[in-house]
Amino acid sequence: MRRYLLRKLLIYILTFFIAATLDWVLPRLVPGNPIQQLLAKIELQPGTYNATYKLYMHSFGFDRPWWDQYLSFWKALFHGNLGISIYDFPKPVTSVIADYVLFTLALLIPAILLAYYAGNKVGAMAARRKSLDNTVLPVGYLLTATAYPWLALLLAFLLAAGGIGHFFPISGGFAYGLLPNWDWAFVWSLMTHWFLPFLTLFLVAFGGWAIGMRNLIIYELESDYTHYLEALGAPSRLVRKYAYRNAMLPQLTGLALQLGVIVGGAIVTEVTFAYPGLGYLIFQAVGNDDYFLLQGIFLFIIVGVLAANFIVDIVYVIVDPRTRVGISGA
């Protein structure tokens, strides 16, 4: 078990290393000097020019040899220094990210967990009942085949813009004019703004989990240990319990693999709803050529995904007994 987790940890460290290096390499690979591209924009804001120019030259350090640039990049990284944002000048990138990250987490965590839970349950039920299966299967496939931006637009149109009604606000994280403040009006505003982006992420992921679970259970019900249990007269309650438990394992692996896709979906969904999370922020960073912010968010998302992966690994160790016993037998 320790070997298993250590190996995973090693891969994650390597992933972070590669991601950070990509972060450093990409701006240097681009034809033309990104600073020059930037300066044209920054010149429009008098007074900030000199400070930003110095900052950029210092951080990119194009005048120094590449290994020196690379080393100072890591040094800055370890000090938590990701540079200064242009989009939200002159805030440090880290504090800009801090302003947005909670919204993303509030969106992603419930969407991932609830979709996973509900999808698994419904998928397992579909594997048992043919009548339910006939709806779950096509609906599930339709949902997974739906592009995030479309579902987001469709839900916004139907439920917010008046296609069916004006039940929810179309955009934003909370209503204009409200100040962040833990009173009921504000919390209610947060909830109503949160719901549609959440629903978008939930629905697409839900379809995938339901189909996955259904197929896995059917596969487990065709497996040898199931046939043996049935041959020994075990009631279907026991058979299904085993099948569900064993099908959970590949689903858990799937959860780790699916994280990246869901994060991608969150970006698009946040942009559609102008929901002030990291996805919306990265969109703004690209639109404003805010390279520091772009790089910072990229690294931040990588760290988040790695942490989530590691949590899944730990859960996997708990759920799958085979990772806990040393695989010694032949």
Binding site: A19, G260, V261, V263, I267, I282, A285, V286, L294, I301
Partner: peptide, 13 residues
Amino acid sequence: TIPGLVLLILIAG
């Protein structure tokens, strides 16, 4: 482990 769309956005940026 690296989310594909995020990497694409970084590259496209």
